[in-house]
Design a protein around this nucleic acid. Structure first.
Lengths: 230, 230
DNA sequence: GTTCCCAATATCCTATAGCATATTGCCGCC
DNA sequence: GGCGGCAATATGCTATAGGATATTGGGAAC
């Protein structure tokens, strides 16, 4: 028989998936800075896995635009969004998201409204939980960014067009944008604008919902842009 | 010294990229049918490479949605578009492409117009080159599909928003859609509709360009849908 | 002092071997 | 005759070793 003394280094689902998520978090949480080289063997040792799943994970992340592979030099973390890419991202969001909001409103039911409202409440709770005297940790920004993302994803999913939601989450720059939240400052404006969108959906007014979403995207762009230029 | 008698099995750029393109063509050209299992080792032997680049290529293709990975069963070719996904694809295209056409028209110059016109002429040449008595080979459909794709990509690229073009080409279903061209039938309608778009762009009429593109998408959807239901 | 060349190093890329798990066919049992 | 369990097989997953190439540092020549 064989002895079973191996310490089981990771939770073990599909190793490649675990590595993919792990590296994604590593980048998004600023533990690796943009432009830095990524050594495959080193990363494999750190995560206690073999290089093969690391390679597969990096190949996926390259499709996400989060890392860049140069022919015989290896992988490196993609640079942060520049001003032009930032404007382009919001132009595409401004095109897609109001459309998704209109569709979602046309098909909306009670469940969707309560789910969206629950997300808003959670965000308000996060904001209230912050102590002014205590500096904001990256976990605060992280939580806030996730709540924002979940709200927008829920609307896209409710549009009845799955491809629309996929297209939105594939906007590779979303991941980079997450990093920007660090500088954005967490304010109650986001929750208020979300509230306006939900109100229009609850009233079954598709055009109002689309307009509220467009307004939200524009204002969000303005907030991020201010933080961006500093 | 070392002897150099190795036969150099592939052109050798970056092996992973070559495998990626090779598998993509294999699927798009119907050499592997949807739903079929893909054996990594077998594929590696066929292409005369080691399993590692095959793994990386398949990981990328999974992000494209062209193959599916099941936990401990391996990869298989993604199933063809169903009717719902087909309608969703055209809904998204109908949202994005007229916008791209409007932007491209606003920024258009002489070069763009001539480039687009050249593409249309090439497509007309392809159509005229077909002999009625000779059955259409897959190379004919392939050539036609590529010309159509190049036209749309050129407009998206000219929009001034790179992300718009990337978003469009990332619509994973485009690859699947290519397979549909086999059943669509090649007609002169496509070239004529392209012509209308270019005419609007040449006249610097952004709204007309957007309308012409929207009309083209709708008609294309109708043509494909007919072939789709057979 | 600067530039060019060479060597040493590091890293990626390829290949192969061993392990774990899912699947399939067969046999026995009910 | 149908069903459940078991064993054999196939396949994907992990790990490690060796070869090829780009990069970097030092030394010599100008």
């Amino acid at each position: 028989m064989k002895e079973r003394a191996r310490p089981a280094p990771l939770p073990r689902l599909i190793l490649t998936d675990s590595v993919y998520e792990a590296v994604k978090e590593l980048v998004m949480d600023q533990h690796i800075e943009p432009g830095a080289r990524v050594n495959i063997d080193q990363l494999a040792r750190d995560l206690r896995v073999s290089p093969t799943p690391v390679r597969e994970a990096l190949a996926r992340l390259e499709m996400d635009g989060l890392v860049i592979k140069e022919p015989l030099r290896g992988y490196s973390i993609a640079p942060i969004l520049d001003a032009a890419a930032f404007e382009q991202l919001y132009e595409v969001r401004g095109l897609i998201e109001p459309f998704a909001a209109r569709r979602a409103c046309e098909r909306a039911n009670r469940q969707l409204v309560t789910a969206l409202q629950r997300e808003i409440d959670a965000m308000r709770k996060t904001i209230e939980g912050l102590r002014p005297e205590k500096p904001l940790g990256y976990r605060d920004y992280r939580e806030f960014a996730f709540q924002d993302a979940r709200f927008h994803e829920a609307i896209a999913a409710a549009s009845g067009n799955e491809l629309l939601g996929e297209t939105l989450s594939r906007l590779r720059s979303h991941l980079h944008l997450y990093r920007l939240y660090y500088a954005t400052g967490i304010g109650p404006e986001t929750a208020a604008e979300h509230e306006a969108i939900v109100k229009a959906i609850a009233a079954h007014q598709p055009e109002e919902a689309a307009a509220a979403m467009a307004e939200h995207i524009t204002r969000s762009q303005g907030r991020q842009r201010r933080a961006f230029e500093s």
